[in-house]
Nucleic acid binder design. Structure first.
Lengths: 221, 221
DNA sequence: ATATTTTTTTAGATTAATCTAAAATTTAAT
DNA sequence: ATTAAATTTTAGATTAATCTAAAAAAATAT
């Protein structure tokens, strides 16, 4: 069995591995778990004993296949519950993360499968993140950041890579929701900020910081 | 804040208090929490410091108003989630207890209220137990046990006072579900077992042990 | 190549929840 | 009203997860 705490470590190691595609450092894990490096060292030793990670002192950590399977199950549950909260209970996309952080640790395979079915086997969560299937398989979607798009291009918003409530609220207020069309009108060289026109024809100023966290797909002409 | 563990203690003290309507003994709590009396003593001291229970050494324990409010919130969540699992996800009534034991500790007022609304503000859970409202108010329903019903009487099944999966499966197999009509045909004096006829006209033998755990309401003629 | 800085690990404590064994208190029985 | 039995509490350990401070290792800079 994996504890609530162990699951959180695995989830975070998974996330960091996916970003960097190499060994994950103790400090990086400490930052996301909101603990100290000393605590992480302890936990990595323990996860290593349980065959959930490959860990060599001072050399960083990687998930084993087993560890990755556990992490993907937690991520699957997190994302399915987020869909439930938004689609069925009417929460906004900026309100569901904290609750899903709790629900993701509920332990019942049967529950997950029935929830999946109840929701109509969704493929993406309310932030556009893909939902792993029962076998932990999740399509790797290679979207671009809005910050990489050149002037004149049209794109569709497919996801966000930052999930804080303030960020999500800011986007919603601007009308930036999943699926919306964006045309890059101007790129301001000095700070890389953008002027964009949305599908509803409204114009907006988007900072580079924000643009980096918007995942988009080019529209094929 | 109350921990997962503290909430379980409060819930169990609530249950035992409701049954006996007097101070609850350390041993009784130990039995239901599946811990030892020594552990319970420790926890009672701690809950007492937090003003959640009134506790005098060697004299048993009672919930304070605060403690009762917390217990009722947990019970509300447990029963609402059970309704969700049965009504929305299609679980049987004997499959939901363990899962609800986990879900009842999810901490979000907003979630509970929205879930309640989503379910249509149910008044009873799948076992016939009443669901406390937002304010912790729960009608006290004075049903009779089937074991107290005399020969010739007609009753409707309103609930069960035993929630184990085996018991619930046994009832379901016999056709004893909430709302079903029962006529007591015979009382066998030597073991107090009953012969009954159900609404579907099937006849059944019911042991005293089972009859004691069936909550019924007389039909007014 | 050595010294300095940064990162990581170890050592030793702390907190929550539990346990066993022993002591204290209450209840029951003669 | 004692004594015996049952219940409850305390004392002292244990486990999981965390911490701070110090030591060790790795990375960086001169």
């Amino acid at each position: 069995m994996t504890s609530f705490t162990e699951e959180n470590y695995l989830k975070i190691i998974y996330k960091l591995s996916a970003e960097t595609d190499s060994e994950v450092s103790t400090n990086a894990v400490a930052e996301l778990t909101l603990t100290k490096a000393a605590s992480v060292s302890d936990m990595l030793r323990k996860l290593s004993e349980k065959q959930l990670v490959n860990y060599q002192k001072y050399q960083g950590v990687r998930l084993t296949e087993l560890g990755e399977a556990v992490a993907l199950k937690v991520i699957r549950k997190h994302r399915l519950w987020e869909v439930f909260l938004v689609e069925k209970l009417g929460f906004n996309w900026d309100e569901v993360h904290e609750i899903a952080e709790q629900l993701e640790h509920i332990d019942s395979e049967e529950l997950v499968e029935r929830l999946d079915e109840f929701l109509g086997f969704p493929k993406f969560d309310p932030h556009g993140d893909p939902i792993p299937d029962t076998f932990g398989i999740m399509p790797e979607l290679r979207y671009q950041n809005l910050s990489e798009i050149s002037v004149g291009q049209s794109v569709v918003m497919m996801g966000v890579s930052e999930h804080s409530a303030t960020f999500l609220q800011y986007l919603a207020k601007m009308g930036l929701t999943l699926g919306c069309h964006i045309v890059v009108k101007e790129l301001n060289d000095f700070d890389k900020s953008l002027n964009v026109k949305l599908g509803d024809l409204s114009n907006h100023f988007i900072s580079h910081e924000v643009a980096k966290n918007l995942l988009v797909k080019s529209i094929k002409n």
